[in-house]
């Protein structure tokens, strides 16, 4: 990681610690914030959190590796989690799983090479009466069929286009439409 990136990550962590507090009970909210914004809790991030909260880095590592929504390795910007529990299983989650693998070109547990998508299994999402269900980051989708897999992923891809476009135009450069035409 470049020093500039490290400095930015450290500043983000300091901001999260300012917001949630510098105590042990703020650890999970801080880690959740890092995961959300950086899609990974790296060694450097864990050391920095430990420094900010004045605890041993291994304490942080122990927590990160315990929870399935926190990861030391890099995740995609969109994490797709398909429910594998019995009620969704009986509603043909296997077909949705195959379609997701086909449309993303990866297997469960993997991340696309462009860093956009990670595909994972989830346990019961609490949507058993309207399965198969999946989460894309925080958003839930129910009664998903194979065709909708394509739609959902395409909508995610549009989000990437939109945010990429915001990055290139920055502030104050006319309307979004004009900027896009350029």
């Amino acid at each position: 990681m470049l020093p500039a990136q490290q400095a930015r990550l450290a500043a983000d962590i300091a901001e999260l610690a300012d917001h949630h507090g510098r105590c042990r009970s703020a650890l999970l909210p801080i880690l959740q914030g890092i995961q959300r914004d950086h899609h990974q809790i790296s060694d450097f991030a864990m050391q920095e959190v430990a420094r900010q909260l004045d605890i041993h880095p291994v304490e942080v590592y122990g927590v990160v590796t315990f929870y399935s929504f926190l990861n030391t390795g890099r995740e995609g910007r969109m994490v797709v989690r398909l429910c594998r529990t019995i009620s969704c299983d009986m509603q043909h989650k296997d077909r949705i799983a195959r379609q997701l693998e086909n449309d993303l070109g990866i297997k469960f547990g993997d991340t696309t090479s462009d860093g956009r998508f990670t595909l994972q299994w989830a346990h019961c999402l609490g949507m058993c009466d309207q399965g198969p269900a999946l989460l894309v980051n925080d958003q839930v989708f129910t009664r998903v069929n194979c065709e909708q897999v394509h739609e959902i992923l395409e909508n995610c891809r549009k989000t990437f286009t939109a945010s990429g476009h915001v990055l290139t135009t920055g502030h104050g450069h006319g309307t979004a439409k004009e900027a896009f035409a350029r």
Partner: peptide, 11 residues
């Protein structure tokens, strides 16, 4: 923390 498979009443 409603996580029991098949439970969604708390939601």
């Amino acid at each position: 923390d409603e996580g029991e498979p098949g439970t969604f009443k708390d939601r």
